[in-house]
C-alpha cells in the first residue's frame, strides 16, 4: 500500500502526577492513508481525544508524549519545536472540536477569525483572504455567506457554528482533519448533515479524516476503517464493515451488541458487565480481562500485542494467537 499520510507507532502518553505516572495511552499504533476516513471509537476515557491531541501537539500539560513516534508523510512531528508544530497546525492538520458553541471566540466576527487563520498560513493579501473566507463559508453551507461573514458567532445557531468551525479547520487546506466528536453537542437532526459535510468536503480536497466519536452509527456510515480503543490501548482495527459485522475482539463484540437497532426486536440491549478500569488500576495482562467472558490464564499475565488478521485487520487478543499462527 502507498505511504500512509499519518503513521502513529507505539504512541505512549503519560501524565506525571504526585502519586506516580499515569499512562493514558499505551503503545497505540495505526496508520491513516491519504483520502481515508479513520473512525476512532471507545468509551469515555479510552484515550480517543488524547490521541488526537497528541497528534496535533496540543496535549495539556503535564500530559506528554513519552514514547513512540508520529509521522506525517514520513516526517516525524512528535519532536518538533513549538514554532514548527504551530506551522503544521491548521496548515497541514486541521481540527474540529466537540462544542461549536464554545469553539469560536465570541468577541470576533466570523470574518476576523477566518481571515486571521488564512493569513497565518497562506501567502495571500487581506482582500484575497476575505474572498477565500466567503467561498469557504459558502462551501460549508452558510446561506448568504457574503452578508453573514461579518456577523459574530452568537448570531449563528449551533449547527451553523459547527459549519463555521469546519470552515476554519479547512481554511488552509490541511491534509488531515481531526474531528473530535464533532456532533456530540448538536441536535440529532443536524448531526448527519455535519458528518456528511465533513466527509464530503474532505473527499473533495483529498484530505484524510480522523473521526473521533463514541457513536458507532456515525462510524458505520462514514468511516473507511475503524480503530477501537480500550483503556488507552488499541483493541482492534480494520475495515469498518468487517469490524462491525464480524467483530473479533470480545470488547468490540460487546460494543457492537450494545447498539440499539430498530430492525431487531430485542427486549434488552446487551451490555458489557463492569466498567472500564481507571488509569490507576489497569489490570496486568489484557486490560479487558476482568470484563471478558472468554478470558483465560494467559490474558491475566501477558498483554496481547495487536495480531495481524486476514483482510488488513489487527486484533489485540490472545484468542487469535494460535489461529493466526496457522494462517
Amino acid at each position: 500500500m502507498a505511504e500512509p499520510l499519518l503513521s502513529v507507532r507505539d504512541l505512549v502518553v503519560e501524565f506525571p502526577t504526585r502519586r506516580g505516572t499515569l499512562t493514558a495511552i499505551n503503545k497505540v499504533s495505526f496508520d491513516i492513508h491519504p483520502g481515508e476516513v479513520l473512525g476512532v471509537v471507545g468509551e469515555s476515557g479510552a484515550g480517543k481525544s488524547l490521541t488526537g491531541a497528541a497528534i496535533i501537539g496540543l496535549l495539556e500539560p503535564p500530559g506528554r508524549i513519552a514514547g513512540g513516534e508520529i509521522r506525517l508523510r514520513g516526517e516525524r512531528i512528535d519532536h518538533l519545536t513549538r514554532e514548527a508544530m504551530r506551522r503544521i497546525r491548521g496548515k497541514r492538520i486541521g481540527m474540529v472540536f466537540q462544542d461549536p458553541l464554545t469553539s469560536l471566540n465570541p468577541l470576533y466576527t466570523v470574518s476576523q477569525q477566518l481571515t486571521e487563520t488564512i493569513l497565518t498560513h497562506l501567502p495571500v493579501s487581506r482582500k484575497e483572504a476575505r474572498e477565500r473566507a466567503i467561498a469557504l463559508l459558502d462551501r460549508v453551507g452558510i446561506p448568504a455567506a457574503r452578508r453573514r461573514i461579518d456577523d459574530y458567532p452568537h448570531h449563528f445557531s449551533g449547527g451553523m457554528r459547527q459549519r463555521v468551525v469546519i470552515a476554519l479547520a479547512l481554511a488552509a487546506e490541511p491534509e488531515l482533519v481531526i474531528a473530535d466528536e464533532p456532533t456530540t453537542a448538536l441536535d440529532v437532526s443536524v448531526q448527519a448533515q455535519i458528518i456528511d459535510l465533513i466527509k464530503e468536503i474532505c473527499m473533495e480536497r483529498g484530505a484524510s479524516v480522523m473521526l473521533i466519536t463514541h457513536d458507532m452509527g456515525v462510524i458505520a456510515e462514514t468511516a473507511d476503517r475503524v480503530a477501537v480503543l480500550y483503556a488507552g490501548r488499541l483493541a482492534e482495527i480494520g475495515p469498518v464493515h468487517d469490524v462491525i459485522t464480524k467483530a473479533e475482539h470480545p470488547y468490540t463484540k460487546g460494543l457492537m451488541g450494545s447498539i440499539p437497532t430498530l430492525s431487531h426486536d430485542e427486549d434488552r440491549l446487551v451490555q458489557i458487565p463492569g466498567s472500564m478500569p481507571r488509569l490507576t488500576a489497569i489490570p496486568t495482562g489484557c486490560a479487558f480481562n476482568p470484563r471478558c467472558g472468554e478470558a483465560f490464564a494467559k490474558c491475566h499475565v501477558d498483554r496481547p500485542d495487536p495480531i495481524e488478521r486476514p483482510d488488513n485487520r489487527q486484533v489485540a487478543c490472545w484468542l487469535y494467537e494460535k489461529e493466526s499462527a496457522h494462517v
Binding site: 496535533i56 496540543l58 504551530r86 506551522r87 503544521i88 497546525r89 491548521g90 496548515k91 486541521g94 481540527m95 472540536f97 462544542d99 464554545t102 469553539s103 469560536l104 471566540n105 465570541p106 486571521e116 487563520t117 497565518t120 498560513h121 468551525v165 476554519l168 479547520a169 481554511a171 488552509a172
Partner: peptide, 14 residues
C-alpha cells in the same frame, strides 16, 4: 476555554 484551544489548533501565533 475551548476557543483558545481551537485558536491554537488553527496554528495562530502565540
Amino acid at each position: 476555554t475551548d476557543y483558545i484551544k481551537f485558536a491554537r489548533a488553527r496554528g495562530l501565533s502565540n
